[in-house]
Amino acid sequence: MNTKLRRGLRLVRVLLSSQYAYMLEYRAEIALWALSGVLPFIMLGLWSGASGADASNATAELTPLGLDPIALARYFLAVFIVRQFTLVWVIYTFEEDHLQGRLSGYLLQPLAPVWRYVSAHIAEQATRLPFVIALAALFFLLYPAAFWLPSPAALLLAVLAMQLAFALRFLIQFALTTVCFWSERASALERLLFIPYLYLSGLIAPLHLYPEPVRRLALWTPFPYMIAIPAQLLAGEEVDVVASFAVVGCWIAILLPLTLFLWRRGLRKYGAMGA
């Protein structure tokens, strides 16, 4: 048992360090990806601009909606950070690996291919970290009134919620990824999945601005737990922690067996490209 554990730990270390070295080669691209996540800042501009108070003059006046501009700024910065660490792109890499026949080689190795993709994602998040810190620093420089440091407890909860958000998003996308076994262009499906993610996750507005029925409906879907809930925790807002984690747990309990089932069915279908 002990040797098995040690072997597993060594495997994790090797996988992560090799993927990290690989990702460091692409740091320019990863920085650009980080930069392309500007949507939360555009939305912050809209919600704080318009008829409301100007975001750049940091008076604590309320906008006509009763939105506290500083809370708004913190929320959208938190959204930006959460999004950076929960991005999932496995469907694109897997589709390419499948079409180019690299998957056959991975399947021969004594390690389920999914771990290769998980470690690539984690390594990429680690590569992102410095850029995200730099962008957050720039944000505080432009808008010093919004500066805050989350309490250790809030930070711990937020990081945990972010990890769960990443797991949830990865599981959903991986379930779609298995469609690659049946179709050559499965990544087009991700475009469809992205729509409810974009509009229900709280990326475009804090959830409390949604009409009440929509908000309640959204909270039953997995999407707010991918952005809004971790962001609220990070920004130090009140969140029903127990209920949120319970919903996430339920979704993972549904998605995990489903994804495993699809993966096994897909593998049976798999005959390598060109066979």
Binding site: L46, W47, A50, S51, G52, P64, L65, A205, L209, Y210
Partner: peptide
């Protein structure tokens, strides 16, 4: 969302 609340654009 912007117009429902009277926030406008």
């Amino acid at each position: 969302l912007f117009y429902r609340s009277g926030h406008g654009l």
